[in-house]
């Protein structure tokens, strides 16, 4: 198991390095000189050259790349040249919004999606199953930002229960901070919950038809006992894969939802950086997103191996 984890971890590190290289290269070939962008069209060539040197833009690409990577290891992400602050500090400030938002959304989507999927599978063919699956079909089709707009209209504008947007820092008022994340995480979670419900149902229905469920029943279990004791764990395998992938969508989704609710998270930071052409900020934020996604996939792999002995066994006969 440890070796399995170590192998996967090396894979993760390699992927991350490639991701960093591609991001760096993509942004490095960007037409337009950041120094000129900062100083404006009327700047003298001398001033531009001076700023380039100050920003370290005149060094060879390879040197700058490894400088960037090496810096990230010690928490130095460089200096944002539009905001004049260390990028690490900017990103860290935003994670207080984005991480809770993602985690709450993940918990919501699993907490809603999985039970619905199990219920529908156990009552396959019933009215409840049909109804739940129609809801899931709709849930999958709803754009999360649009759903967010509706939530604001209903709960903030009409009912005035929750704030329509913005964010109160955790240090100021934790309850208000939490309250401002409720609607955004629901908007993020709902489509994902619908997907999970569908995957869970399919997986469980497949498992119900499997030979080992038949064996378990032949041993003296009823169908529902057999499904609970032997089916659910097997059905979790495909669900785990989807959970891992979903995290990627959730991370990406925060970028959108933070826009709907005017949340000062990582997503908004990226947008501001794009419009300001703040390359250093963009590339570091993108790498943080990619790290989150790849890291989750790594955890998914571990969880998968923990559930499935076929993956961690040495004898693969």
């Amino acid at each position: 198991m440890i070796r399995f984890a170590l192998t996967k971890f090396l894979g993760l590190a390699a992927t991350l390095l490639v991701a960093a290289a591609i991001t760096f290269a993509a942004l490095d070939i960007l037409p337009g000189d950041p120094a000129r962008f900062i100083l404006g069209i009327n700047a003298t060539p001398d001033a531009v050259a001076a700023l380039r040197e100050q920003l370290g833009l005149d060094a060879p690409a390879l040197q700058r790349f490894f400088g960037w990577i090496g810096g990230m290891f010690v928490g130095d992400f460089g200096l944002s040249y539009t905001q004049g602050q260390p990028v690490g500090q900017l990103i860290a400030g935003r994670l207080g919004v984005t991480i809770p938002l993602t985690v709450i959304a993940m918990i919501l989507s699993a907490g809603i999606g999985l039970p619905i999927g199990i219920l529908a599978a156990r009552r396959r063919g019933s009215f409840a199953d049909a109804g739940l699956m129609v809801l899931a079909q709709l849930g999958v089709a709803i754009p999360n930002f649009w759903f967010g707009m509706l939530l604001v209209l209903l709960f903030s504008v009409t009912l005035r229960w929750l704030p329509p947007g913005g964010f109160v820092p955790w240090g100021e008022n934790p309850f208000a901070a939490f309250a401002s994340l409720i609607l955004p995480s629901i908007a993020l979670a709902l489509p994902q919950a619908a997907i999970l419900a569908r995957v869970m149902r399919t997986a469980l229905v497949d498992v119900q038809g499997s030979d080992y469920i038949r064996t378990a029943r032949a041993k003296g279990l009823t169908l529902s006992e057999a499904v609970w004791k032997h089916g659910v764990r097997n059905a979790m395998l495909p669900v785990l894969t989807i959970l891992g992938l979903q995290f990627a969508y959730l991370v990406a989704g925060t970028v959108i939802v933070e826009n709907v609710f005017y949340l000062p998270g990582l997503g908004r930071l990226i947008f501001d950086a794009i419009s300001a052409r703040d390359l250093i900020l963009v590339r570091s934020s993108v790498i943080i997103l990619v790290l989150a996604v790849i890291g989750t996939m790594f955890l998914t792999d571990l969880a998968y191996a923990w559930v499935d002995p076929r993956l961690r066994s040495r004898k693969a006969e």
Binding site: Y212, R214, T215, R217, A218, H230, N234, R310
Partner: peptide, 23 residues
């Protein structure tokens, strides 16, 4: 289900898929 296993037991054709792979 109370009769299965206790009074009547069965061996199936496919040994590859008839056992729970996770136990």
């Amino acid at each position: 289900a109370k009769l299965r296993g206790k009074r009547i037991a069965m061996v199936f054709q496919e040994p590859m898929t008839s056992l729970n792979p996770l136990e």
